[in-house]
Nucleic acid binder design. Sequence first.
RNA 1: GGGCGGCUGGCGCAGUUGGUUAGCGCGUCACAUUGACAUUGUGAAGGUCAGAGGUUCGAUUCCUCUGCCGCCCACCA
Length: 1089
Amino acid sequence: METENDLPKAYDASLYEDAISRRWEESGFYNPDNLPGERTEPYSILMPPPNVTGVLHLGHALENALMDTMARYQRMRGKRVLLVPGTDHAAIATQAKVEKRLQAEGMINPRKELGREKLVEKIRAFADESQATILGQVRKMGTSCDWSRLAYTFDAARNIAVNELFFRMHRDGLIYRGYRVVNWSVKGQSTCSDDEIQHMERPSKLYTFKYSKDFPITIATTRPETKLGDTAVAVHPSDTRYTQYIGKTFTADVGAVEPLKIKIIADEGVDPSFGTGALGVTPAHSPIDFAMYEKQKAKGDPIEIIPVIDADGKMTAETGAYAGLTVEVAREKFVGWLKEHDLLEKEEDIVQNVGTSERYGDVIESLPMTQWWLDMNKTIPSRGKSLRDLMREAVTTGLAGDETKKVTITPNRFTKLYLDRVENLRDWCLSRQLWWGHRIPVWYRDEEMCVSAMAPSGDGWEQDPDTLDTWFSSGSWPFSTLGWPRTKVIFVRHGEAMSNAKGFNDGIIGNGENVLTERGEGQVKERAKALKDSGAVAIIASPITRAKQTATMMGEALQIPVTFDDRLREIGFGSYDGKDPVAFDKARGFFDGWKKQPFADAESYPSVHERSHHALKEILATYAGKTVVVVTHGDTLAVMREFGVAGDKSYGYPEPAGAVEISFSADGKQTDDLAVFHPTSWMQMGYEILYLWLMRMILMSAYTLDDVPFKDAYIHGMVRNKEGQKFSKSMGNGLDPLDVVKQYGCDALRISLLLGITPGNDSRYSEEKIESGRNFVNKLWNIGRYVLTTTQKPRAVHDPQRPTDFPFQYGTLHQPPIISTKADAWIIGRLALTHETVTKHLEQYNFSAAGEALREFTWNDFADWYLEISKVQRTGDAEAQAGTDFLLRWVLGVLLRLWHPFMPFVTEVLWKELTEKDDADNLLLVTAWPELQAHLKDSADILQPYQDLVTAIRALRAEHHLQPKQVLEVFVDHVDDQMKKEIAWMQRLTNTTITLGAPEKADGLARAVVGETTLYMDTAAGVDVAAECARLTKEAENLERYLVTVDAKLANEEFASKAPPAVLEKEKGKRAAAAGELAKIQEQLKLLQ
RNA sequence: GGGCGGCUGGCGCAGUUGGUUAGCGCGUCACAUUGACAUUGUGAAGGUCAGAGGUUCGAUUCCUCUGCCGCCCACCA
């Protein structure tokens, strides 16, 4: 261990960070279940799971800094803080990336060449590696997350949640399968959602043409080749040019297999002033046109739909001569044909916005396909509202008008953006033809379809080959990570049987001899009555007669289905079957003994354990989110109760028909996280995923749990480079945060990312910033080093107001500090004020403002002033020195705690040195946030006049180019007892000897006016009177100018009558001060001239 | 086409109910530095808060318009 004297001059983060990290992790305090002290209020943050597509960049570093700063702050405030770490499988992004890699390695079509299984294996390998890297990075950054709750959007527990959610939404009619126009990436061979499309401007041509010579209407298009699939022309209903044609059908032969039958339809959406005012309708290849197609169908005046482009981006067979051509070639050919037949009227160059696939980069085609959709408008049964309604309510009135179920977005302007988007959402296409992702939980067999959270039993079922949009799983993150769906299992022991009454062992299935006694039947009836309102949906039972009987009776009473599972049967008694259970128990021993020792004559513990747990696992998956009853036997029940149960693992039979109730999370653990930590307290994310993620989390939590996923959402901007460009690997300017950490330390990185940011706005990262961050960390280090190496431990303090053995406890600094001098009171005042400011800003997520206030105090007040003043105070008597030492340590103690959320490492190192305690409970990590008495901050300004004088003397010295080493004589014409007390440190800080009182002879002295005080400085060499006058004149002019404006203001009657009195008083006060100072300066000028 | 954000000393940015002689960091200049810290100290210079109107006793702050810069959204085919 370091001793105080060993602290190196410069803080080298790399020497400490790993060890500190280890201490934190080993303390167990990252897990809210282990936090010390009484903590009742939960505080939860979910980490937005980084994509496992690569490594973390500075944006992630910012997120980690934000989350961890908040988590540490709240932990210090005594809350039960949970920060859940995790990663995202990022379906399309990851698959696209791996495919690209494989292609770079020479594979032409990875899907074809490898097949589903092998490609998924490749992707998994890549994802696993990437995940390991990412989690390592998060660890390195000191993020205080609970690793025991680590989650992945593509693990088994999340799969159960996703399936269950899909099942429920389908059951509620929100998820439907429909043939509609989708966004199709030919390159990715998959659909994508509206959000995964990137619009790009691109030069294009607008063609104006007619389908045939005798066709009455001219139309325009940028996609001539799709016109082969036109089935209508839409015009505005009140467009008199065309009203005569509405309803008529024309035939035009444009070279497709069938001549086009074009119906003229009316649609309000057509802009009569654009182009020819008529729109060629291609239902198969345009979402708008498809909407018209549906409208017409609904009206009972249907138009046809003819797909002319296939999934490979080639023309379909319907296009005859064009079949098999790519769209580009077909376009040229068709335009050529138009020209040839003199149908092309115009060809103009325009700039067009085309949609491209975010991940595969190709132009998105609109194609009609059968896909799975989530309906935004359908009323949810029993809610009377649509998903869109829920999303709207969540940020406005709160769900169903409940203010406690409301998400507050910081900064507020994003709320409006969110709402605009909510109103314009279309149904969400959920299915993807990708392989990396959660399979759609739907199975098909012949004509049957089964939507279920679990594979249906029976042969011949084929699961839908498609996968779910990646945001379906990340949208459920706020509750899937906290144990949803929670499954309640009510374990019930069978009623009293003959064997119990008569005393023999029975482990034989179908032993008709051993039935329930009359008493046993009564017990079962009682139990069934008790479970009437339990909400149980099914009973799964052991098939042994007494359990079978019990389950059947209960099933009838509760009106729920009963199934039997062989694996829930009683332990096989072997040679003890039919014999005395007492002898058996004696031979086998108690539960713990049975667990450890093999038992030859009957079934072993591992065997019972294996089969029963296997059964339970299946039950939990099948009935995820529901309540079920499991009817079984004593030993089996005892073994199963062990399932995920912490603590109580004792062997014990319930009474006959006795029940035990246990809740399980989706991954089979007993947990109450969902109840405790959802809704989560705070969520931070970049604005680029506002629509993608925030909306979907709100949608899903509102739907699933009738609550918001989080109370506060904080939107941050992007971290850009010095030039304001995005960091990106493709541009070669990506930056690994770990490299930065290695060079500058984690604390430096954190504060350089956090300071200078404003919510929702982009920030810039630069070498200069991180250096300045590093410099500050070093400054704090040296402040700590100075205090620790110079001052004496506070044991020596004697305070007459307190017992002589007044305990100095750094961890609970609730006692007021001991204040002896004006400077003491001042620094405490400043500290108290800073503490208040920092706390306020952190509560409002103003990380930058909080950090800057702290930085200001640390550097400008504590280091530059108080530390220097303390050096003088310490030269006094022993008591003065002890008092000052106490205060230095006291302030340092508070300061370290205030800084800890921002700079966890360096503060933790110094805290250990300060407190000289190494035990886990003393970690700054779990130390209480300071609380300072409000009145302390009243003295925050009391040193100002003296500081002003010191600054003026220093300025005067600099002005006259006087060496700092040279001791000067200074006269201050202001005399009072107060100043006498402060003179010592003022002299030291200016390297002068200060005489209170005006000099006898002022000639040849430099002079300055500070407020109403004039100070004279003996420069030894005399002064340049002209220069002196010039300087004072300039200052006088400044004041005069100010007085003119203030006087004008004060003379304004309207100002005097309308301005608030406080403002008026303040102005008057300032005017008086300025006038006083001016008078002093003028006096000096007169003397000089 | 709609919307949002930005425009504050050389650079990067604060400025939250309209009232400070407009602040901070970096940089610049001058001086200093074997004494906690050269990853430092002291001092200084530097801005008509993009422009024009308006509301108001008072506008960097609120409103309108204009100009740049950036971003998001969008079914002008």
